[in-house]
């Protein structure tokens, strides 16, 4: 039996996972970030992208959008706007969202709008990436 830690992954519209986990890898602010049992106490942000976590020796995958993560006394809490399994992602919708965002990026926008569109594009791209990889 491998060493484990308690992991809670909660999306804003449903609790995604709660239970023991051996390893968690998520997209951090500057690249992928891995967490093993007995990690030091830490707080950091999660970027859009793919997370994977190992339960009973088996990797599970999900697409996340921005959020944050807290590691305290061998308990990990990941809070994100959306967390989706690869099979739940609607690839067509994500593709449409990507095209829409690209279209908007071509137009002149205020800085705030530009950041919004860029965030929308990132969300769509990370969804597409995860579906392509696992379906």
């Amino acid at each position: 039996m491998a060493k484990t830690f308690h992991l809670d992954i909660i999306a804003s519209d449903h609790p995604f996972y709660s239970g023991d986990c051996e390893t968690l890898v998520f997209p951090g602010l500057d690249g992928e970030f891995g967490i093993l049992p007995n990690h030091e106490e830490m707080v950091t942000c999660v970027n859009e992208g793919e997370i994977r976590f190992k339960v009973d020796g088996e990797w599970r995958y999900a697409a996340v959008s921005t959020g944050f993560i807290e590691v305290i006394s061998n308990k990990v809490i990941l809070l994100s706007d959306t967390v989706e399994r690869p099979e739940d992602i609607d690839a067509n919708r994500a593709e449409e969202a990507k095209q829409r965002a690209l279209e908007r990026l071509r137009q002149k926008q205020s800085i705030a709008e530009y950041y919004q569109t860029q965030a929308a594009l990132n969300r769509a791209m990370s969804r597409l990436k995860v579906t392509k990889k696992h379906n």
């Binding site: 602010l29 106490e41 830490m42 942000c45």
Partner: peptide
Amino acid sequence: IHHAHFYPSPEQVMDGLVPNYIKG
């Protein structure tokens, strides 16, 4: 209670975390 480690830096974490928290 001890301070937790904020990676890469507390300021950077808060820059990303707070807007996310307020939205949620």
